[in-house]
Write a protein that binds this DNA or RNA. Sequence first.
DNA 1: AAATCAAGCAACCGCCCGTAT
DNA 2: CATACGGGCGGTTGCTTGATT
Length: 355
Amino acid sequence: MGRAPCCDKANVKKGPWSPEEDTKLKSYIEKHGTGGNWIALPQKIGLKRCGKSCRLRWLNYLRPNIKHGGFSEEEDNIICSLYISIGSRWSVIAAQLPGRTDNDIKNYWNTRLKKKLLGKHRKEQQARRVGNSSSIKQQEANRGSSVSMVPDDSSHQQSYWPETPVLTPLPCSNQGPCFNDHDSIRRLLIKLGGRFSDDHYQPTPIHEGLNLQFSDATATASTQQIYEEQAGNYMGSSASSGMNNVAINKNEAQFAEIQYCAGVDLVQGQGSFSSTILEEMISSYPQKLDGLEFFYGEDPMVNDKIGLIGSICGQSASWGGPTSLVYPPHVASNYQGMRQEMPQFEEYFRYPGTQ
DNA sequence: AAATCAAGCAACCGCCCGTAT
DNA sequence: CATACGGGCGGTTGCTTGATT
């Protein structure tokens, strides 16, 4: 039995919204809210629109405090960092950029940022081929100093934002990249299903379905609280629909840790995680590099593929050099297989009960 | 001035997931 | 447990606008 359409397609208007439609929708929602039912909303207002269309219009354009265009360098960096870490999960990325919508970020990434970064990376590839190492160093030095990390005070979450799970807005300082903040990254990755080890945290049998730890002893009580909320969610979902959800989230969390390690290296200029493990990954799993092809350019050499992160965040190769690489989600989904096939892998990621 | 091309963006489509029945 | 339904999301489409020939 096929799905019933969400609306009567024949009697529904499509295409651009008129100012009148915008006004109707906006004033109604501001007065009465959405009523928790987008499908019924257009009939109440007298709009010949699909409920989903109304929802999209409201979320992307009519909601207060929406910012359009004019992405800052700082926002670029956040988007890049998150894209590298979690992939095209635009809603999660958008939650880190108050005032931005997932659609906006997605469009921005697809139309500009991707090309911008690709151009940057190719430039570096060419420079490397020419062997002009001194000019590269100069470029990198310039780039490092040009990365703007100016805090944006105007971007606090407003009351219309809670529909997306709000993570703590990145606490930016003018001293360095926003993503230097471990806790922000932790919160984000926890949201995606992982958790961090906590000296005060004692795993219970009920939590063992999520036996993932991040090797970070600085986890805070708030982090633990978030994790426990997450664990509660998982317990709830597993109670209603089996353990599959937990298993899925566990994989995501494992992926998140891999990404987290690389991501922290990425943003902090620390190469400790990357060097050995990633070289091994690359030599063992060159096919796993799919998904970020656009960064690689036409150069088949793996080493060239790996300079991408440096390009992305405008950081020098010095922090990770030719060994800094993160894996797209589908790679991480095969994490168990990777562990089995590559014993060394285990050495780098300690999980509870594996020591 | 007209035609063509490319970029940007708003909106739609279809799938997945959670929840209610 | 199965089914229906709504919400949410990412991918894609197609229109608009500006640049170039």
